[in-house]
Write a protein that binds this DNA or RNA. Sequence first.
DNA 1: GCCGTCACGGTTGAA
DNA 2: TTTTCAACCGTGACG
Length: 354
Amino acid sequence: MDQNYGEVNQLGGVFVNGRPLPNAIRLRIVELAQLGIRPCDISRQLRVSHGCVSKILARYNETGSILPGAIGGSKPRVTTPNVVKNIRDYKQGDPGIFAWEIRDRLLADGVCDKYNVPSVSSISRILRNKIGNLSQPNQYENGKQGPPQSGLSYNHIYPYSYPNAMSPSGTKMSNPGVPVTGGHVSIPRGWPSAHTVSNILGIRAFMDPTAIASAEGYAPKMEDWSSVNRATFASAHGVNGIDKSAIDADIKYPQPSSTLSSYVPACAYSPSNQYGVYSGPAGSYVSPGHHWQAQGTSLSHPGGGVAMHPSDIHSSMAFKHAVRDGDRKPPSPLSKQQQHLSSIHGLSLSTSSS
DNA sequence: GCCGTCACGGTTGAA
DNA sequence: TTTTCAACCGTGACG
């Protein structure tokens, strides 16, 4: 796919329609929110639409992860051969059985769980289409599940545990150098805590300019970087548990600006060169004087890879910190999240630098 | 002015 | 190999 395309939003930020914001920006959004900066300010600062900021923060609040959901693909089938076979068995055993009864039995017998049990209408459809005439052998019949993906192809139970989406095997890696241990994860469905911001935040390399600089165009397929991020966070290799290539993968989302030394992740776009490249606002909202040293500055990681200098941020921020304000309504769910983060993930965010 | 929500046009990837 | 379809995306507008 050709990169170097993109659009500029009303705020002057560059985005690629249909594609998630780079993790660095997503991370930044959460970071800033945690610092007490209001979403509207974050929106302006990063030049990301407020709807998007709102969405990312809401998602983060809900799932604890900044990562985007898994794009593309299909839901796993619930009507696995095994399920069909069982339905057929039930039907044979009791021809008058209702679909809802079958459903209950599937649950009761442990054939399915609440997540992957077919709906009543699905069962009806199965009865009609696949089992219709019980006198005739069904394709899935007789224990020998004929169809190709019999048995193990599908998880016996996959409560959105995505046999492929989450499984390592389901992950294609375009970058052979990146060891991926987990598959890519469908975010809303049970996000592993390994993907929580704290994990990410502790990762300097994640926003490491060099990593960012390695970006070349809009390379990463969603799949790649989702797997990358999700998987790698869980895996313990690379920097702070994150493989740098993983980071790169994210970063590949064009965040060119090789001079990101001060990590101006989303903000340091160089308007000229990167049209369509995730470089950030077209006009630097953050003036050069403002260094936004995001990673270096912002968050520490318990593991110690990252030194945190909240003051950097604070001093460079032109924004009020709602957290300290007190005169403001609770800024966002994030404030709550903050505690959550700090306490649960041992993140020392110290929003008020003291 | 801020924020939550939703329609829209887009991308992606499993089937 | 190609097509279909349902997932997700961020933007922009509305209330």
